[in-house]
Design a protein around this nucleic acid. Structure first.
Lengths: 225, 225
DNA sequence: AAATTCTTGTCAATTGATTGACACAACCCT
DNA sequence: AGGGTTGTGTCAATCAATTGACAAGAATTT
């Protein structure tokens, strides 16, 4: 399918390009040059051109990039032009919060089922979706052609559940549990380790340099450096 | 304070080291070599030594690293040996989920206040913490010596609130809103862009190579590559 | 229609991160 | 106490990512 391996660094920037392109589109702007994008996004124009060119020549010399076209192409590259079917495993606070966050659905990530090991909450509805017992999970995944399982369970049971998930043919796991999941390499795992993120913030707080205290200038950019 | 800039790549790995060291500690293991750590963590021994050595010589030749000592030192480096005081801005599902997630408190991140612009839910209690109106936020931050604000509000109001926060002397922002925050460089921002993460997963799903389908071997590692 | 400007795609240079190799210090066993 | 072993700290080499530079194609102006 692919020729050369594309670095995760590039992939990681695509959603951000998509976000800014979406904003330009909403403003009715039809064309944009790498230089203009670079100004609003706080990235080098060279990097933008390099990144986009990894996937093909989307631009045109003397013109730049067509916003709408580029937007659609990046969506295709990311595979979000098609729907994804997800289940939540773990109906705790976080699991419920994710189900209630409608933006995912708008981007084509559809929650189809919710599973929990606590029999007391099984049968309850969250945003119209019934909470089911874990025993029904394997069958549900196969019958409903589920792509992605969202793991919002404590680390203690996460490894065991991940094993179960890989046995019944899940393709990807969005892992909020604070463990590394030992799954076969053909299953994609995307970790969201919230406490790791918070610790990084903590480090950066304590290591604020004097120099930066001195010349207090606006950065204009919010992403990780 | 610091001599040479330490790369975010290194910082990003420290929480993971800490996690594995904590597990070793719980198992009662007192010493570990970079080689042993490398085996369980799926990283090269060289990288582990290089990373740790960035902050000083924690190990000893012929012995390895003392698990407890190294654990404490990494905690100090990350600045999580001291308490941090946080507020949540945005008492929606996600904000509530974070408040209810007790693991943060166990690591020294203490939620002190919750703020929301919706007057209807102001006055309510979430895990013993009263939801207050946004007008009280600036005063509260100063009076309670708040370090970190957690932004769990829609992107539409995030930039405005971030401005407010930087005006009243917040040091760090843990940003769950889907925008880049234009704050002064001396304010640390750590972004958790959930939909970006989900899009990365989507990409990796669609780009699974045939080769990896072929030789289905266990990776043993769950983190991003 | 020619001249000028714009702006990509791409190659080369640089910068940064990871891995490998090894000298030497500390440990452990006899 | 001495010799073999272990395993760090560190330097060098490799590998990867980012930035800079520019030729050439397309658009726009005159």
């Amino acid at each position: 399918m692919e020729e050369k391996e594309i670095s995760q660094a590039v992939i990681g920037r695509l959603p951000r390009y998509l976000r800014y392109l979406g904003e330009l589109k909403d403003e009715g702007i039809e064309r944009v040059s790498s230089q203009e994008l670079s100004d609003i996004m706080q990235a080098t124009a060279s990097q933008i051109r390099q990144d986009l060119n990894t996937f093909g020549g989307f631009g045109q010399q003397g013109y730049g990039y067509n916003v709408g076209y580029l937007y659609d192409e990046i969506r295709k590259i990311l595979g979000i032009d098609k729907e994804h079917r997800l289940i939540i495993v773990g109906a705790g606070h976080l699991g419920q919060a994710l189900v209630n966050y409608t933006n995912f659905e708008r981007r084509g990530f559809i929650f189809r089922g919710i599973f929990d090991c606590n029999p007391e909450i099984c049968g309850e509805q969250i945003r119209g979706i019934t909470v089911r017992p874990m025993e029904e999970m394997a069958g549900f995944i196969r019958e409903n052609d589920i792509d992605i399982a969202v793991l919002t369970i404590p680390k203690t049971s996460a490894v065991e559940v991940a094993k179960k998930l890989s046995d019944c043919g899940i393709k990807g796991i969005w892992n909020f549990a604070h463990v590394d999941l030992p799954v076969p390499a053909y299953i994609q795992v995307e970790n969201v380790h919230l406490s790791d993120s918070l610790m990084k913030l903590s480090y950066n707080l304590s290591s604020v340099r004097e120099e930066s205290e001195a010349d207090r200038k606006v950065d204009g950019n919010g992403q990780n450096r």
